[in-house]
Simulated scan of single mutants.
Amino acid sequence: MSKFEFAPMPNSEGYFGEYGGQIIPPELKQAMDDISLAYEEIRQTQAFQDELMQLFQDYVGRPSPVYHAKRLSDQIGGAQIYLKREDLNHTGAHKINHCLGEALLAKHMGKKKVIAETGAGQHGVALATACALVGIPCEIHMGQVDIEKEHPNVTKMKILGCKLVAVTQGTATLKDAVDSAFVAYLENPTDYIYAIGSVVGPHPFPAMVRDFQSIIGREAREQFQTKFNQLPDVITACVGGGSNAIGLFTAFLEDEDVKIVGVEPAGEGLDTHRHSATLTLGSPGAIHGFKCYVLQDENGEPLPVHSIASGLDYPGVGPQHSYLKDIERVQYQSVTDQECLDAFMTLSQVEGIIPALESAHAVAWAMRQAREMAPEQRILVNLSGRGDKDADYVADKLGL
C-alpha cells in the first residue's frame, strides 16, 4: 500500500484537487461536454483500443526502448542514467501518442476540421501526420517567433498538408498560438475539434491527453522490471504543459520508493523575468479555460515567459501537475538555458543522441543529480523528442 493518498484524478467535474475544471463560456461548455462524452464512450470499446494499439506498434514503432547511457554515466560519475527513447517514435517525439488518439476521436465524432496550437512544432507535426492518416483537414496555429526558430518542423507540417497560421500578436510564441487557435475553434465548435497539445485546457483534455501518453510509463515500468527486477530510483522529465512528464509519471505514482522530478525551464535565471518556471515561482490562477499554477501579475494576467525550448515557454501548466506539487508526490525543479545547452551538446557528443532542447532540460537535471547518487542507483529520463528541429538554432547560437 502506498503512503500517498490521491483525490480522484480528475473528479466528475474535471478537477484534480482544486485544479482543472472548465472555466469557459457557455457556448463552449456543450462542445467540451460532447467531446468528454464521446471520449468516454469510445475509449471503452475494444475496436478503438485495438486500432490505437495497432497504430502504436506498426505506425509509431512502439514500444520505445529504454537505453543505458553508459558513456554519459561513466563520464559524470554516480548513478546510472537511462533514457526512455520517445525520440525514436515516428515524427520524433512523444506527441504522436496523443495525436493519434485525438485524430481517431475526431473521426469517430464526424468532425470536419482539427485545430491546434504548437510551440516547438512537434505537436503540429504529429497532429498533421495523424490527420493525414485518418483523412481530416488540419489547421495549426504557431507563433511567428517559433516559426522562425523551428523551420524544419514548419516545412514538415506544410508537406503533410496542414494549414499553418502564423501568429504575430503578443510575444508571438506558444501562449499566443493557443489564444489564436481558441478563437478559430470558437467560430464553429460543432464541426471543428480543438486537439490540445498537452495536459492543459478545459476538461476533458488534461485527463484525455494523459491517458494517451500513459503508455510511456507503462512500458518503462515493465521494461525496468523485466531487465532489473526492480524499478528506477528516480524518474524525471521536462515540464512545460506537462504531457510527456505525466505520461511517464502516471505508472509510478503509487511506488513510494520511486522519486519523481519534473524539470522546468529556469531560462536566464529564476532571479530574472526570463524564465518559464511556473510551478517553481507561479501561483494558483486560471488560464485557457482551467485552473492551475500560473506565472501572473497582480491582476491575474499571465506574464511573458521565456525558454530556449519553444515547447516549454508557457505561463501555465497541467492541472494534475499542480495537484501533484501540492500533495508533494512530485518535486519540481528547474534548469537554465545554459545548462540545457550543455546537456544538449554533451549527450550528442558522448552518446551520439541529439535531444530536443525540451528533453535536454531533463537530461541536464539527471546529469546534476547523478553526481549525488551511488553508482548502483538508476535514473530514468524521458527523452521526449529528438533535436533535428533544434540543430540549426543551436549551431547558430554556439557559432558551430
Results as ranks from 00 to 15, higher is better:
residue 24 I to P: 01
residue 289 G to C: 09
residue 120 A to R: 05
residue 5 E to T: 11
residue 98 H to C: 02
residue 395 A to Y: 03
residue 118 T to N: 14
residue 230 Q to P: 00
residue 382 N to H: 09
residue 216 I to F: 01
residue 383 L to V: 10
residue 99 C to H: 04
residue 166 A to K: 06
residue 250 T to E: 13
residue 332 Y to P: 01
residue 178 V to N: 11
residue 232 P to C: 09
residue 180 S to G: 11
residue 200 V to N: 04
residue 102 E to T: 10
residue 214 S to E: 14
residue 121 G to T: 09
residue 34 D to P: 00
residue 152 P to K: 05
residue 223 Q to P: 02
residue 233 D to E: 13
residue 78 G to K: 07
residue 295 L to S: 11
residue 318 G to R: 02
residue 64 S to E: 01
residue 359 S to C: 14
residue 288 H to D: 14
residue 304 P to E: 12
residue 226 T to M: 06
residue 279 L to W: 09
residue 62 R to N: 00
residue 298 E to Y: 12
residue 264 E to S: 03
residue 255 D to T: 08
residue 94 H to N: 01
residue 47 A to F: 14
residue 126 A to I: 08
residue 105 L to P: 02
residue 206 P to K: 02
residue 39 Y to I: 02
residue 316 G to K: 00
residue 386 R to A: 11
residue 310 S to G: 03
residue 377 Q to K: 13
residue 395 A to V: 06
residue 299 N to H: 15
residue 24 I to K: 03
residue 302 P to G: 10
residue 378 R to W: 00
residue 238 C to N: 08
residue 326 D to Q: 08
residue 330 V to P: 01
residue 155 T to F: 15
residue 254 E to T: 12
residue 35 I to Y: 05
residue 12 S to M: 05
residue 369 Q to W: 03
residue 214 S to I: 09
residue 216 I to L: 12
residue 138 C to W: 09
